[in-house]
Simulated assay, not measured.
Amino acid sequence: MSKSDESTYAYVSFIRTTPEKLWSALTDPTQMKEYWFGMHFETEWKTGAAWQLLFPDGKVADTGEILEFDRPRKLRLKWRNEFKPELKAEGFALCTIELEPYGDAVRLSITHTMERADSAFIRSVAGGWPKVLSNLKSFLETGLIVITQTDHAH
């Protein structure tokens, strides 16, 4: 498959925290609800486990499988949207989350890739990740949330 046959979204943020605290925020449902608009993951957090991202009302937003779980460095997820039929029809994407110490901060890299040119799902996550990660950064650095609502575009 050539690069023209896939869609990719990549985001890098530097968060003044420790890898352990960032990992905890990424995997703990209580913390996740604080910065992810009340949404959270339900999973066993181990390689091979199924996962669901749930809306505050309990409806399923996204699902997938944990392909790699290397605490507190790397998380690879098979990821599919479940609530928008046109996005679900595109199938599964791959999401890679990497944490790397960077001085007094952590470099957080997220890459979402789908083996489909001009993916509507990748366009959707490109609108959602910046909001979620801005809130995550604010949450870990100040305890405050900047963006308080979402249009559920993703």
Rank of each mutant, 00 (worst) to 15 (best):
S2F: 04
T30N: 14
L77R: 00
G103K: 07
W79L: 01
A126R: 15
D62V: 00
L99Y: 12
E6C: 14
Q149P: 10
T8K: 12
Y35W: 14
F41V: 12
T43S: 06
T148A: 13
P19N: 09
F14E: 15
I145W: 03
S2V: 05
S13L: 06
H152P: 02
E82P: 06
K137V: 05
W36Q: 15
I66A: 04
E86C: 05
L108M: 10
D151N: 09
I110N: 00
E34K: 11
I122Y: 02
D118I: 03
A49E: 07
P56S: 06
I122E: 06
N135D: 13
P56A: 13
E86W: 01
P101G: 04
F37T: 04
D70E: 14
E141L: 09
E98W: 08
A49C: 10
H40P: 07
F83M: 01
V125A: 01
M1T: 10
E141T: 01
G38I: 06
F14M: 09
E98L: 09
G58I: 03
C95N: 02
R116Y: 11
K88Q: 10
Y11W: 13
S4V: 09
S138M: 04
S13Q: 06
T17R: 00
T148E: 13
L140D: 05
S119K: 01
W129D: 02
P101N: 03
T63V: 08
E6W: 10
F139C: 13
N81R: 08
T17D: 00
P101D: 15
L144M: 15
A126G: 15
K84Y: 04
D104H: 07
H40Y: 15
P85E: 05
F55E: 06
R123D: 14
S109P: 12
K137S: 14
S24H: 14
D118W: 02
L87M: 07
K88D: 06
V125Y: 02
D104Y: 14
A126Y: 10
E98P: 11
Y102K: 07
I147R: 15
L144E: 15
T27R: 07
K137P: 10
F37P: 10
C95S: 05
A25T: 01
E65A: 09
I145V: 11
F139K: 14
G58Y: 02
K3E: 13
E98D: 10
L53C: 14
Q52H: 08
H40D: 08
L67S: 11
E20Q: 12
G91T: 03
D62T: 00
H40N: 15
S134L: 13
A61M: 09
R16A: 11
G91D: 06
Q149C: 06
M32I: 08
L26C: 10
W23L: 12
D104Q: 15
L94P: 01
I110F: 11
E115G: 08
E141D: 04
V125C: 04
A126P: 14
T113D: 06
Y102N: 15
T150M: 08
P19G: 12
M39W: 12
V106L: 05
P19T: 09
L87S: 07
E65L: 09
T142W: 09
T96I: 11
A89N: 10
G103R: 12
T47L: 10
K84D: 04
E141C: 01
I15M: 13
P29H: 11
